[in-house]
Simulated assay, not measured.
Amino acid sequence: MTPSFRTLRHIAVASGLLFSLASQHAVAADGEKITIMVGGITKLIYLPARLTEQLGYFKDEGLDVELLSQPAGVDAENELLAGAVQAVVGFYDHTIDLQTKGKDVKAIVVFGQVPGEVEMVSTKAAETVKSMADVKGKTLGVTGLGSSTSFLTQYLAGQHGIQSTQYTMLPVGADASFIAAIKQGRIDAGMTTEPTVSALQKSGDAKVLVDMRSVEGTKAALGGTYPASSLYVQAAWADSHKAQAAKLAHAFVRTMQFIHTHSAEEIAAKMPDDYQKDKPLYVSALKASLPMFTADGKMPADGPETVLKVLSAFNPSVKGKHIELAKTYTNEFTGSK
């Protein structure tokens, strides 16, 4: 074997080894676990998170996804900023609020074209609280201070000229802790979602004051569609993990299509039993929630402007600031630029 041929062979072997190592690294990088923090995983507004897992769509995309839960979206947001998780299932409005704080975060899939939130008034307080115009001096429950429920609560009260200093906002979480706060009289009214809404109605402990589960109800309350539950990530992660971001988006879009082509009963059948201890109640709550979901995961055209309007009305970190809405979301990964 001539020296030149031996050298060429060594180069070929070395190149092949490098290619093999590069391929293995690519597979490893693509196979990295993606941890998603959900702002209350049993809330029906965030149904697509667990449903996507239950349907096996993450695995179909070759993704290793772990779902975690925090009771309030603001806590989930903090986990994302700390780098503890790669994505959050929470409200889109956090991306606008964070931009004012120098954080570049964007929604890459939109689940809810409306908040799915309902302001409930306790039956005890219903005689004196007929609308948000009557909340002066009252205690209003929110999931957490700085959460989307607190943003919306302030906006709805502000529409009636009531400042946030004229009532008390009490963080009471969601689900069982929210129900307990109503039953114990710690809050007069509060903002929550399904299935808590249906549970409170069934028990007779609370009534609907403002309903933002449908497009019609949301337009009446907020003046337009209000994109809410979404999957958001740090922009730098989306830029450096485009393949994973696209696979995540594809898995969720398949779920949105599943939701729009199946009945509440069929969807409920796919969910874990511990999510629906009272199955008829869960199905009923799900039926009331289905109108909130997008069919394709894309941002509604008028959505970002409505959210900015709501936040600008009272949020000091957003009010009067220039917000580049185009940087707060992208339809790139759901198939439309």
Score class of each variant (00 low, 15 high):
residue 105 V to F: 10
residue 38 V to F: 08
residue 174 A to G: 14
residue 97 D to T: 01
residue 263 S to H: 10
residue 194 E to M: 07
residue 71 P to N: 02
residue 261 T to W: 11
residue 237 W to S: 08
residue 134 D to E: 06
residue 289 S to N: 12
residue 15 S to K: 09
residue 70 Q to A: 14
residue 214 S to P: 05
residue 312 S to A: 15
residue 88 V to Q: 13
residue 77 E to F: 12
residue 31 G to N: 15
residue 37 M to F: 11
residue 235 A to F: 11
residue 171 P to C: 04
residue 59 K to C: 09
residue 228 A to I: 06
residue 138 K to L: 00
residue 7 T to Y: 15
residue 316 P to W: 09
residue 21 L to H: 13
residue 228 A to V: 08
residue 187 I to M: 07
residue 80 L to M: 10
residue 135 V to S: 00
residue 121 V to F: 07
residue 93 D to M: 12
residue 250 H to Y: 04
residue 41 I to G: 07
residue 58 F to W: 01
residue 143 T to F: 14
residue 136 K to Y: 10
residue 195 P to S: 03
residue 101 K to N: 06
residue 217 G to F: 03
residue 325 L to E: 00
residue 318 V to S: 07
residue 120 M to C: 08
residue 31 G to L: 12
residue 337 K to H: 15
residue 49 A to L: 05
residue 59 K to N: 12
residue 44 L to T: 09
residue 302 D to R: 09
residue 296 D to C: 01
residue 209 L to E: 10
residue 302 D to A: 09
residue 209 L to W: 00
residue 75 D to G: 05
residue 26 A to L: 12
residue 39 G to R: 10
residue 252 F to I: 07
residue 105 V to D: 01
residue 284 S to F: 08
residue 70 Q to C: 03
residue 276 Q to D: 07
residue 263 S to Q: 08
residue 290 L to R: 00
residue 91 F to D: 15
residue 149 T to M: 02
residue 242 K to F: 11
